[in-house]
């Protein structure tokens, strides 16, 4: 595939890539409900993506809650509204910041990993070899990975939100003398079903987007080892952009059904 030069060529290439990715997604939905199901590989991928991202998510979430609370304190103190800290932080983290930040972290960690792994398999013709040996490489490599990210990301986000709230509670405890019991009582008073449910639902879409872009970029990798790097890089960039588009749409949908 030659490098597009003119604006028209670039536009065509852009739409062609989106179309190709859409068809790739369609193929995923076609394969996901069709046997044989690769449960073992799915569990292995869940372990790889979920368990191995735990440390990153925990550290990021903790620092996120800590810093967010530290930065918000002075402004709330100006209004004499420190008691609103718990509700404000919890709503911000659970509704928006937690899912988006954790998803971006996972896009970097998981999306690039998938892109590089599948890209190198493509370059070294392992995928072709699987096809020759009668194994469906799409089912084994793509479906399991997309499913694994889609299932693991909500769990990672819930964990990240919790750790972020703990970080926030520690700051409140040290700076404001608020007990952990009071802080979490205020958090659970502030949070409603309409805050948690849409935020959790959209993380499934985030996970799907990360998995889809990562596998698409890796599966369609070309040009040798350079292509592997490009696949890994563009997987992160596209996935991150797609996350924000999904988040944008999710906010509108949530606004309609839950009246933010």
């Amino acid at each position: 595939m030659s490098q597009p030069t003119s604006f028209l060529d670039r536009t065509k290439s852009f739409f062609a890539e989106i179309g190709d990715m859409t068809l790739f997604a369609g193929r995923f939905f076609g394969e996901v409900f069709r046997s044989p199901f690769e449960f073992k590989e799915l569990l292995r991928q869940c372990y790889n993506m979920g368990n191995r991202s735990l440390f990153l998510v925990v550290v990021t979430g903790f620092i996120l809650g800590l810093v967010f609370t530290l930065q918000s304190r002075p402004t709330l103190m100006q209004f004499g509204a420190e008691s609103w800290m718990a509700s404000m932080i919890s709503l911000s983290i659970v509704r928006e910041i937690g899912p988006v930040i954790i998803a971006l972290i996972c896009a970097g960690r998981i999306g690039s990993g998938i892109g590089a792994e599948l890209g190198s398999m493509k370059v070294t013709e392992q995928i072709d070899a699987m096809e020759v040996s009668g194994t469906n490489p799409f089912k084994y490599l793509v479906v399991t990975r997309i499913l694994a990210v889609t299932l693991m990301l909500p769990l990672l986000v819930i964990l990240g939100d919790t750790i972020a709230l703990i970080g926030s509670a520690i700051v409140e405890n040290l700076k404001g003398g608020v007990s952990f019991t009071l802080y979490f009582n205020q958090v659970f008073d502030a949070l409603k079903f309409s805050d948690v449910f849409p935020a959790t639902i959209k993380t499934f879409f985030f996970g799907f987007a990360i998995g889809l872009v990562g596998t698409y970029k890796g599966y369609n990798c070309s040009k040798g080892t350079v292509g592997v790097g490009e696949a890994s890089n563009s997987a992160v960039v596209y996935a991150s952009m797609l996350l924000f588009i999904i988040d944008f749409i999710a906010v509108f949908v949530t606004d309609i059904f839950f009246e933010l």
Partner: peptide, 23 residues
């Protein structure tokens, strides 16, 4: 692929527009 891509992009823009209108 290009047709599908255009459909997806236009569909997404219409979806966002409709959601904004409804919202």
């Amino acid at each position: 692929k290009i047709r599908v891509g255009i459909f997806v992009v236009v569909g997404t823009i219409i979806l966002v527009g409709a959601l904004y209108f409804i919202g």
